[in-house]
Design a protein around this nucleic acid. Structure first.
Lengths: 279, 279
DNA sequence: CGCTGAATTCCATATTATGGACATGAGTAT
DNA sequence: ATACTCATGTCCATAATATGGAATTCAGCG
């Protein structure tokens, strides 16, 4: 190598650039960089080399290795593109991904940090289904149980699950939930609060579902950007003053996003905030 | 390196092994081997090293590079597993995959080889929708047009699309299609033929839809193993004697499978032949 | 409290990846 | 036709990079 080519020298040129890795795997890292680069759409060899800050020759060799493994495709006159292997791997991975298992460590961390009870749940039909629960370290017990179903519109978790839904569905569920007994609430006021929750990508439960229990919840999104689950931190109202709820928002959202990332979600993902308000 | 470690020496040990690639990217290839190995389920470092036929030290370094990039996950007491990056890439890739575009080169090759008209189609509601057509080199013209819809039960393409459906759906569609005019046919006979098509993963059209036009069709499966499209080779009956239809079966199925592979399908894929016979 | 079976770190070595230069090929303008 | 351009593909001497054996740490377990 005639020219000393240090990674840091060219860092300014490279876009995604290599976080140099555990050192001793430059070739692998560069190969993965190529996969990333190629995901932005068809690209020519020269552009690819420029984007990665490496020699065309090197880029060509690595790209061809990826082509042979079907991670990348090359079409003359078009350029390098993602390959079918990614479809196969993605599907395989999706099949073997279980929200509960993925979320566990994150929920435990959040519970340890807040000392309160943490829940994980999904939508099942018109109800929220609790999939997991890590009890808090406080004397007050939360009565929820894994496997239990709760109304969507009156629990923090449920409302987080509904954040992407159309207003029509909100109304429908709200009326259904109100019909079944619980203390009367005003739809207009509820709607206003929901709109605020949507903006904040986080919801509250202010003793609506259970007296003296308040909670902060946030939705979990998968690779498609869809809400596939939600998490919540619940505690007795005495530990959940308004300011604490505000303070918890950050932690809860961060945990929800961390779980999402483990499900393939990324901020720059498809349908990042495109609310799918149908019917 | 004290010990001469040539790729071919250890090829007997390695399972998936490296198809040595374009030489000059050993590290990348080994990294990709790790991804493959890890997709079979959680695995310890030692087992991983054994499976790939390389040193634990090397394996560890490469695996960690992949972990940093989120292609692989490590959980103590469990082992190395696929990582969330594969979910993200898979989803991204799926979003940008278009059957027509992917199928084109394969259809052209098949048309060139057979000299007959080749079609690509999908199910739309209760009909087969033609998405692409490569005209044959024979004097006889096939009247179909891209964008056109045809009955599912009387065309070769349509029957290929139905190969995984439940018998109940077959009957329902058959009766609906018969109602709308065409010459009467016997359901029992049709059913028997369909069962044969299912076994052969290929269907025929014996002048049912259009007089003097016969065709051979096969389904295209994506990464999930589901039938997402079908292709057919059509020609005038004079060029389509029974023996030629049998002979074409291989080519048509191979082309359909090649398209499927470009859509992420693999023979060892989930739901490979598990017929989803519901309702 | 010392095993056992794992992951992780270290470092001298030579194998592997590198990139400059050159070759080829397919459109396109002349 | 013929030269030009912009693209991908190939070669090979060089040195930087990846390698793996050995030593180390870590976490359960008996």
């Amino acid at each position: 190598m005639k020219q000393t080519r240090s990674n840091t020298d060219m860092a300014s040129v490279a876009e995604k650039a290599e976080a140099k890795g555990p050192a001793g795997s430059q070739t692998l890292m560069r190969g993965l960089d190529i996969i990333d680069a190629v995901m932005d759409g068809p690209i020519t060899l020269a552009d690819l080399a420029a984007k990665l800050g490496l020699n065309r020759s090197t880029t060509h060799r690595l790209a061809n290795a990826l082509i042979e493994r079907r991670y990348v495709t090359f079409m003359p006159r078009i350029g390098y593109q993602f390959g079918p292997k990614l479809l196969a791997l993605g599907f395989l991975a999706q099949q073997r991904t279980d929200v509960v298992q993925v979320a566990r460590p994150h929920l435990e961390a959040l519970a340890a940090q807040t000392e309160d009870t943490v829940h994980l749940g999904v939508i099942e039909g018109d109800l929220a289904l609790y999939l997991d629960k890590i009890p808090g370290r406080r004397r007050v017990e939360i009565s929820s149980r894994v496997g239990e179903r709760q109304p969507l519109t009156s629990t923090g978790l449920g409302k987080a699950l509904l954040l992407d839904e159309a207003e029509a569905r909100w109304r429908q569920l709200f009326e259904r939930d109100q019909a079944s007994g619980s203390p009367k609430a005003d739809y207009a006021a509820w709607l206003e609060r929901m709109k605020g929750y949507v903006e904040a990508e986080r919801s509250f439960d202010l003793e609506e579902n259970e007296d003296l229990i308040r909670c902060v919840a946030a939705p979990v999104r998968d690779a498609s950007g869809r809400i596939v689950a939600a998490i919540s931190v619940s505690s007795a109202a005495q530990y959940m003053a308004d300011d604490r709820m505000q303070a918890l928002t950050g932690d809860v959202r961060e945990t929800a996003e961390a779980i999402g990332r483990d499900l393939g979600w990324s901020e720059t993902a498809p349908t990042p905030r495109a609310r799918t308000r149908r019917s």
